[in-house]
Design a protein around this nucleic acid. Structure first.
Lengths: 156, 156
DNA sequence: GCCAGAATGTTGTCATTGACAACAATTGGG
DNA sequence: CCCAATTGTTGTCAATGACAACATTCTGGC
């Protein structure tokens, strides 16, 4: 029997801290969350010079890739609720990284754009994000990172 | 070029909502978080009859697997901060699922045990958790679930 | 063209979570 | 014995998700 199978059947107490995690061993959500927390904390640390958090970063990238779209469209793409996105955008606007113009087609909605400042900031931000992704690769192994990415990408 | 590679290079706009997620396509953390949110929401929904949330569930399983250990030990195992764990345990104690006794060895610490009620509840809870895990497998595919579990387990 | 219902963005509120600090009681090393 | 560290508790703050109410605007059926 291989190592992974033994662990899956929980034949060993996990030696870490001397405590076993019991049947958590078989819950994908547990491990998913642990890694996700590690990744986000590393992201936040690495991007600290620009004071950008993951949600803000995702909004900036989606605006960059879809210039002029509405808040509703951005929010649906990222699964960010209207109210929360409105407040996120206020902050990005306060920092002069994005601008919102009244849409020509629909007076209810705002078209979102990166400003020149925003583009400049995003260049630096992407460079830090790249560094973060490299740290992640070195933590979990570049090959495993790639495998995980491919397995997960199909549910975006 | 294969589909995954095309997507990785962002040659297509993602047709969902008509918007592209831009360079998020290459961020493991983004996909990790999306799936993690799906998993936790399904867990919370499925366990609603018992009103148990993921953190509570993980604490119950670890106490079950490590009867009599201290809050500090449980907290370190699950990466739950002291203050938060204290409040989690108050709630579980209020529901009469766990008991805390003064430790014989160290008067500062509390030994944690499941009560009879707790064991009974945990049986039902585990059955719902099993149902949740089956739903997850049918959502992402049993094979992919197993692959992800094995890839992630090495960082518990 | 008109009106009811839907969509859009804004603001307010609430519950959960993570992080941190302060504190009392207790332990352990020197 | 004394001082630093540990344990558990409580309080506070910031970030987040969820939800409701609201004004404005659009859309579809008539």
């Amino acid at each position: 029997m291989r190592t992974a199978e033994k662990a899956a059947l929980n034949e060993w107490p996990d030696p870490r801290e001397g405590l076993s995690i019991g049947q958590l061993e078989n819950h994908l959500g547990y491990f998913l969350r642990r890694l996700q927390i590690w990744v986000f904390q590393d992201f936040i640390q690495t991007l600290r010079p620009m004071k950008v958090r993951p949600a803000q970063y995702s909004v900036l990238l989606v605006i960059e890739a879809n210039s002029g779209r509405s808040q509703a469209a951005i929010g649906q793409t990222l699964n960010i609720e209207r109210a929360r996105l409105a407040r996120l955008l206020h902050e990005l606007e306060r920092r002069k990284w994005i601008s919102r113009r009244a849409s020509a087609k629909d007076a209810r909605s705002h078209s979102l754009y990166l400003t020149k400042d925003g583009e400049k900031a995003l260049t630096r931000i992407k460079s830090l994000a790249k560094q973060h992704e490299a740290q992640l690769a070195s933590f979990i192994g570049p090959r495993r990172r790639q495998q995980l990415l491919e397995l997960l990408r199909e549910f975006g």
